[in-house]
Write a protein that binds this DNA or RNA. Structure first.
Length: 650
RNA sequence: CGCGGAGUAGAGCAGUUGGUAGCUCGUCGGGCUCAUAACCCGGAGGUCAGAGGUUCAAGUCCUCUCUCCGCAACCA
């Protein structure tokens, strides 16, 4: 123990659905970092958990015919089971429905209110249930939620707001003074330029539209909205107390060394969360790392695309450690990675079976054959031995260095450099030749000793990433558990007897795998189908009936496109000059991704002639043209060629 | 000109302060037999997106252009 503490957290998982492999990745990544720090002698505290409040959960529980509590108990249990299953070594699994968490959050809210950082106001706009977000009229997409496409409702509610702008200058200063605070670096400018510098909006921190949440202690109509509730978990878990009686854990571990989160919620963690802490007078976390996403092939995983992969499906085929290995080794540091079965197959056979597994196996076999499974004492060293030792020590140093900056994939690569070099060492020293003559016995002993020593090094370095595999290697070689900080070449004890040989990773046949993949997916999908359906069907897709009088209010008319040009500084907009049979008009339409100006000029279209004009990107649009949403990002303009301009439509 | 990132062998990526372009996979050829048809060596394959500039020297610095991505804006 070197007396240094290390507090790491993951984002808490929303308990609306079972996490897919991309979500699981975050937990495994945090686990690898936590284990590595522990092996280095840090006093580590690793927090993960679930975010269990909100309207979406309330609605979903209702749809399932159970209480919200029963719903979140089930999902949280499932998430925790997966984490355990993946060998995630968290110290605490916090749930935002824990009474201790809820009490502290109420106190935090009250304190912020009492000191004037939170005030009462009202919120007006369009509300999207699934996203639990308000949108202004201009944010809507075809009258629907711009994020998820669901129908929105006009709503207004009394709400509490957090005065964000007050702390913006201090936050900007903190970000500039602490260059490592936001990682990867590219995100830092994004936050500063897009949000902080243009001016922060006050944040709405309460809701009255649902009640599955933590009540505001002094105003029971209100429930504390996600930000204060969820983000606070990082300190409530440690027993923070706004009244100044924080617990031992808090005093010991806060501030967090790393908040590991998905890149999508970086904004909340690098702006709202630090500001909350400043308001509370609490020290800010040292680093927020927004890790990239794991995509399926080229696509983002999503249920609607039907390409969701669950960690357990992969584990069924490759095992826990191979799945961990793949996630940790294949994901780049700053850009999105992709999951494909071909890739994991290549990694499995190439890295795990051939390079690692085979090395462990052949060395074990030689020790058995030449020394009756007893670790021989080394003799005099040769240049080749020194070289191997140097590579081992460099792998250790490099891995430590890479892990400092959370370059996990690179750290793993460092270990494989050692493994490759060790395989090469066997070819260079040819133990089977040495074994032929009694004269070269001492040399053979040295070679075997060095091989086992190299494997011992690798096993120690591997342990944070592949804990189970490392343990199996130690068992086969009868090695004690070793830390990383204390790892020293030559500390391997001679004279001990090896354990039983065991295949670490059996090679997988490509064809057989393809069949298994299909089988696992079929089974999973069948199992998941019924429960998956329930929450999705709750959204009514229909539009209310209107009578003929309503329709008569809409003036539809044919117009001919005379000219068309892109709107400057707008990606999606085209400016159309139309002959509508009268004075002519200009319409701006968001069809640039699908149509070029020359595709449209000369054609006739149907327009809504009496729509209130609006200014889009500085250009006034006097109406809209009709286009069909042909699904899956395909928009088609409805042409009315041949019909005279100005004809009205009923 | 809204902010930022990226364009390097068939694929996926490294290339720190400018000094012979590298790694893994794949491919072709060879070696070895301790081992999981594994392991080791070698070859082929790159005008480092394009154009200009600074320099004795540019993947690396400067300017411009093109393409892709993230965020923001935007879809009457």
């Amino acid at each position: 123990m070197n007396g240094k503490k290390f507090y790491i957290t993951t984002a808490i998982v929303y308990t609306s659905k079972v996490p897919h492999i991309g979500n699981t990745y975050e937990a495994v990544l945090a686990d690898a970092i936590a284990r590595f720090r522990r092996a280095q002698g840090f006093d580590v505290y690793f927090l993960t958990g679930t975010d269990e409040h909100g309207q979406k959960i309330q609605d979903q529980a209702k749809a399932e015919g159970q209480t919200p509590q029963a719903h979140v108990d089930a999902v949280a249990g499932e998430i925790r089971r997966i984490w355990d299953f993946m060998n995630v070594s968290y110290d605490q699994f916090i749930r935002t429905t824990n009474s201790s968490h809820m009490e502290i959050v109420q106190k935090i809210f009250k304190k912020l209110y009492d000191q004037g950082d939170i005030y009462q106001g009202s919120y007006e706009g369009y509300y999207c249930k699934p996203c639990e977000s308000f949108f202004t009229e201009t944010q809507l997409k075809d009258g629907c939620c711009p994020d998820c496409g669901a129908k929105v409702e006009r709503a207004s509610e009394e709400a509490y707001f957090f005065k964000m702008s007050k702390y913006a200058p201090a936050l900007e200063q903190y970000i500039l003074d602490n260059p490592d605070f936001i990682q990867p670096e590219s995100r830092k400018n994004e936050m500063l330029n897009n949000f902080i510098r243009p001016g922060l909006q006050d944040l709405c921190v309460s809701r009255t539209s649902f009640d599955w949440g933590i009540p505001v202690s002094f105003d029971s109509k209100h429930v504390i909205y996600v930000w204060i509730d969820a983000l606070s978990n990082y300190i409530t878990a440690l027993g923070y107390d706004p009244d100044g009686n924080s617990g031992e854990l808090f005093n010991k571990y806060w501030p967090a060394n790393v908040h590991l989160i998905g890149k999508d919620i970086l904004r909340f963690h690098t702006i709202y969360w630090p500001i909350m802490l400043m308001a509370l007078g609490v020290e800010l976390p040292k680093q927020v790392f927004g890790h990239p996403w794991m995509l399926f092939g080229e696509d983002k995983m999503s249920k609607s695309k039907g390409n969701v992969v669950y960690a357990e499906q992969v584990v069924k085929l490759f095992g826990v450690d191979a799945t961990r290995y793949y996630m940790l080794r294949e994901m780049p540091f700053a850009s999105d990675g992709s999951f494909t079965y071909e890739q994991i197959m290549t990694r499995y056979n190439g890295d795990l079976a051939n390079i690692l597994g085979n090395l462990v196996s052949r060395t074990h076999a030689m020790t058995l054959k030449y020394f009756d499974s007893i670790v021989p004492a080394p003799g005099e060293g040769a240049p080749l031995d020194d070289e191997l030792r140097a590579v081992a020590e460099k792998a250790l140093a490099d891995a430590v260095e890479d892990m400092k900056t959370l370059h996990v994939a690179d750290a793993i690569d460092d270990i494989w450099t050692l493994l490759r070099r060790t395989n090469k060492y066997i070819d260079e020293t040819t133990p089977w030749t040495l074994a032929k003559s009694e004269d070269s016995r001492p040399r053979l002993a040295t070679v075997i000793y060095n091989l086992i020593e190299s494997i011992r090094f690798a096993a120690a370095l591997l342990a944070p990433f592949l804990p189970d595999t490392a343990a199996r290697i130690r068992a086969q070689y009868n090695l004690p558990e070793a830390g990383i900080e204390t790892l020293a070449w030559g500390a391997l004890e001679a004279g001990t007897t090896l354990g039983t040989a065991e295949t670490l990773f059996a090679r997988i046949d490509e064809k057989a795998l393809a069949e298994q993949v299909a089988a696992v997916h079929a089974a999973e999908n069948e199992k998941k189908e019924p429960e998956k359906k329930a929450p999705e069907t709750e959204k009514p897709e229909g539009v209310a009936m209107i009578d003929i009088a309503d329709f008569a209010k809409v003036s539809l008319r044919v117009a001919k496109i005379l000219a068309c040009e892109p709107v400057p500084k707008a990606k999606k907009l085209l400016k159309l000059t139309l002959d509508d049979g009268e004075v002519g008009r200009t319409i701006v339409s968001g069809i640039a991704p699908w149509y070029k100006p020359e595709d449209l000029i000369g054609h006739s279209v149907i327009i809504v002639a009496n729509l209130k004009p609006a200014v889009l990107r500085g250009v006034e649009s006097q109406g809209m043209l009709l286009a069909a949403d042909a699904g899956d990002n395909d928009v088609r303009v409805i042409f009315a060629d041949g019909i005279p301009a100005g004809s009205s439509i009923h």
